[in-house]
Design a protein around this nucleic acid. Structure first.
Lengths: 162, 162
DNA sequence: TCGTATCCTTCACGAAGAAGAAACACTCAC
DNA sequence: GTGAGTGTTTCTTCTTCGTGAAGGATACGA
């Protein structure tokens, strides 16, 4: 994973993008500027003018951390769900359900929320959701994702560990 | 979690201990010395003489990371109990009981309190609580938590040391 | 030391309810 | 037309949860 070098504060908006994308980044803090508070493991900073050895060390440290940290997140785009190389095409309803689940990956999403998001203009019968979850499960099994049920609470999606 | 400050390279052996213990640490690199290659998220360094603002920022960053990394406290949310990576889904009654126990983690909670919180609208037979504790114990064993009995006083929950 | 009352643990059973699964019919895009 | 996507019905399976009963552990008085 490549570490991105950028200037602070002049490239502030670029930094925000990188943070969202969870890419490792090293800020070169301009003379006189105050470094921002680092809040995750993929960010570090150096005050300019930079010492070359320091730059090397910190870049390398970020690379090491990034490799530990980055686990490729499953992504859903245009009805295509990708996870670690594999992918499946998802039909509209299932794509919407998956979007909600992935949005809160690892945490519980209630049936009500799923019904709302899956059928924006009025939900069908009670069992429709169950059946779709069933179908979704079968599709997801091919790409290393599982939907776990939390009884009387809802469902949660997670990356398969096996 | 407290960040340990230490000098490098004069306190090398102390650093090694801290690394083993996985405690967050900030190295103050003595003038002329080369900083060591950082390999985890709980370590950082600053070249002496240190700027006070920089020290603050890096210390705080380490604290934040440490809290993310070492999730010591078990957490219960939406019927899902998490503890150090592992999780279980808890049914309604057991979730309520666990909530009370975790709320006073490490201290005794009386059966009366448990009954009240577990069954907000009237408790069932006396034995129900015992049985639920039994079931809860089995579930909790999978996530490194134990419920201990304090005879004639109540129960307490704690993190398993094994 | 010994009984005994009390507290606690554990098991087995059954009712109620939640979720899973199969089968079928309808719709719509290609 | 054909096939995938979708919704419904129906049936099955699994989970939860309360109860009763058996037995172990502990405290305490005789």
């Amino acid at each position: 994973m490549n570490v991105v070098l950028l200037h602070w504060p002049s490239e502030r908006s670029r930094l925000e993008r990188l943070r969202e994308q969870q890419l490792p980044r090293l800020l070169l803090v301009e003379p006189g500027a105050i470094a921002p508070q680092v809040t995750d493991c993929l960010e570090d900073w150096l005050r300019m003018p930079v010492d070359d050895a320091d730059l090397q060390l910190r870049t390398r440290a970020l690379e090491i951390r990034a490799n530990e940290h980055i686990r490729v997140k499953p992504e859903l785009e245009d009805g295509v769900l990708r996870n670690g190389g594999a992918w499946v095409a998802l039909p509209p309803v299932e794509a919407r359900l998956t979007a909600v689940l992935l949005d809160r990956i690892g945490t519980v999403v209630s049936r009500e929320t799923l019904a709302e998001k899956g059928w924006p203009e009025g939900t069908p019968g009670r069992n429709a959701l169950d059946v779709h979850v069933l179908r979704l499960r079968r599709r997801l099994s091919g790409v290393g994702l599982v939907i776990r049920t939390v009884r009387s609470r809802g469902y949660l999606i997670e990356v398969c560990d096996t």
